[in-house]
């Protein structure tokens, strides 16, 4: 399916995304009034919002690429488009190889099911095969540190335990390209150290990683190259240090103005 040069894991060209929504409080009554009156000032309006504008970038194979930007910059929208969850309004995307995404921890978790049952469901949703999950059950349970409660419904878990369990499943995904959305810092200090080590294994394992964050430190720590998104536009691309500096400039301007 991919006729692209194999040097790049991800290539995007001029991605734009415009959201269209009816104005809130749209009712049938207002729509009806609009229909029968010739008033130019319609009550039901189509609102447009440009979340991304002409975003182009390339990620080399094996690279850890960071996307940074303040809240509302369009980071999550871009990720969803890259994963194929959302369709861009215009533009092209090519991903070379298999792709997994950790956009959220514990997708598909059900409070009434046991830890063990939830590991299976969550793992399958993340794209692991039945075989892989079966082979790694013990490791996942061990890593999560909730071994004693693994056959209890997870509604009895503390929220910290639930997050640790979901993280332990998530770190087992094994794609060519991994998309990570600010799921790095979870759990207490001890668990964070453990998970940090695991993420470094990920990154050093020759895999392409796309890391999205508004946290400058994790981008600086892990990424060789980065891109700064601001109000849907690419403001800077290149060496992580330069991009982060640019981000700090924008923050300063916003803070003072």
């Amino acid at each position: 399916m991919h006729s692209y040069d194999s040097e790049y894991a991800i290539e995007t060209e001029n991605i734009s995304k415009v959201f269209r929504r009816l104005s809130s409080h749209t009712t049938l009554k207002k729509a009806f009034i609009d229909l029968i009156t010739f008033n130019k000032n319609k009550q039901v309006k189509m609102l447009k919002f440009t979340a991304l504008e002409n975003v182009s970038f390339k990620v080399k194979k094996g690279e850890t690429f960071g996307i940074i930007g303040p809240n509302g910059a369009g980071k999550s929208t871009l990720l969803k488009i890259l994963c194929g969850i959302m369709k861009p309004t215009t533009g092209r995307i090519a991903v070379n190889g298999s792709l997994s995404a950790l956009l959220e921890l514990g997708t598909g978790f059900h409070p009434e099911l046991t830890g063990r049952e939830n590991i299976l469901i969550n793992g399958l949703i993340l794209g692991l095969s039945k075989k892989e999950i079966m082979a790694k059950y013990d490791e996942i349970i061990e890593f999560s540190g909730v071994k004693d409660f693994i056959d209890e419904p997870i509604k009895t878990y503390s929220s910290g335990m639930q997050i640790r369990l979901s993280f332990s499943v998530a770190v087992n995904v094994n794609p060519d390209v991994l998309v990570l959305d600010e799921v790095l810092a979870v759990g207490d200090a001890e668990f964070q150290a453990k998970s940090r080590k695991r993420i470094e294994e990920f990154i050093n394992g020759g895999r392409t990683v796309l890391l999205v964050s508004h946290d400058k430190k994790s981008i600086l720590d892990y990424c060789s190259e980065a891109m700064l998104l601001y109000k849907g536009n690419v403001v800077a691309t290149g060496q992580t240090r330069d991009v982060v500096e640019k981000y700090e400039e924008i923050e300063q301007v916003n803070f003072n103005g």
Binding site: I85, L103, T107, G108, I125, L126
Partner: peptide, 9 residues
């Protein structure tokens, strides 16, 4: 919910 908006299934 997130099964559609945040997962690849």
């Amino acid at each position: 919910g997130s099964l559609v908006s945040k997962s690849l299934i």
